[in-house]
């Protein structure tokens, strides 16, 4: 009885504290995220150029279907996402596992080195990569010297290799970043669990599969969702490597780059740009839901 009576008080106490902890964040997000989002939702029903807009209903959605450039951007974005995210996260997990050995010599050196790429600024990164991957640049030179290829790879001028280069670049920049998440989560795992497992004779691989991975599940989910968002909103790399063109032949044009062009480069068409951005929203929401679902199922 006493417990039950206390129930209401506890709940109220919980509630007040709960709101107090989250209030500052919710206030800011409300003003600087939700309000602009609703605004852009409203804009997505407007048509017209620049400042002269009128209500267009679903005109922008119809325009999507008849826009070959949009279809191209959508398929490019999907290809980047499907290929790049698994490669990067797998690599990050392997590297983090290798680094999570206190006896490893040169551990902090490796960790620092692999994390370094994500501290570069956009400008540095694009200037560097363009020079390294030029037709007669250092990368082709090295590959030729090693007899891996016989003629230079046209990294930025061939539709296929341009996509490969973008994938290499994002993976270069963000693998270390994801690795740090895995590593810091691995270090939060209680060491005694490993000790116990070791005493029970479970192999290193078994400990990794049955202890590390399950304990890491929240973080893996986290990196999956953020990488999905990052890849579906891919902009920086393609914008800088292709001088904003998404070339060759629109083969690296992504949805975000197309939104940017519609907003800032082309005749301003904010309504249509907002509609394209909601396509990304729908895609990410669906994928995130799938990922949450997939990781929850095994509980």
């Amino acid at each position: 009885m006493a417990v039950l009576q206390a129930g209401g008080g506890v709940r109220r106490y919980y509630n007040i504290n709960g709101w107090l902890f989250v209030a500052p964040a919710l206030g800011l997000i409300g003003v600087f995220m939700v309000y602009p989002i609703l605004w852009s939702l409203w804009m997505s029903f407007q048509t017209g150029k620049g400042l002269t807009t009128k209500f267009g209903g679903f005109a922008n959605i119809i325009r999507l279907w008849n826009d070959p450039v949009f279809i191209k951007a959508l398929s490019n974005t999907t290809i980047f996402f499907v290929i790049q995210v698994p490669i990067m996260l797998f690599l990050a997990l392997i590297v983090a596992a290798a680094l999570n050995n206190p006896k490893l010599w040169g551990r902090s050196f490796f960790r620092t080195a692999i994390f370094l790429p994500c501290v570069t600024s956009l400008v540095a990164y694009s200037v560097l990569f363009k020079s390294m991957f030029a037709a007669d640049g250092v990368v082709n030179g090295a590959l030729q010297a090693l007899h891996i290829i016989s003629s230079p790879i046209p990294w930025l001028t061939d539709p296929f290799w341009a996509k490969v280069l973008i994938i290499i670049a994002i993976t270069w920049r963000w693998t270390g970043y994801n690795m740090i998440f895995y590593l810091s989560a691995m270090q939060n795992i209680d060491k005694s669990i490993y000790e116990a497992a070791r005493i029970d004779g479970i192999s290193a691989r078994g400990r990794f599969l049955y202890i590390t991975i399950p304990m890491l599940k929240p973080v893996i989910l986290f990196t999956m969702v953020t990488s999905t968002i990052g890849t579906l909103q891919l902009f920086d790399e393609v914008y800088n490597f292709t001088e904003g063109k998404g070339g060759p032949s629109n083969e690296t044009l992504t949805l975000s780059l197309y939104i940017y062009n519609l907003t800032f480069k082309f005749m301003p068409s904010f309504g249509y740009a907002a509609t394209v951005s909601y396509v990304i929203v729908v895609m990410v929401a669906l994928l995130a839901f799938l990922q949450f679902y997939a990781t929850r199922e095994r509980d």
Binding site: V69, T157, P159, K245, G247, P248, S249, N250, N261, K265, F266, M267
Partner: peptide
């Protein structure tokens, strides 16, 4: 005109062809 950027993007996209 007002659409030079758009046209330029279209031409650029067809150059590989």
């Amino acid at each position: 005109g007002v659409f030079t950027n758009e046209a330029d993007a279209a031409v650029t996209a067809q150059l590989p062809a």
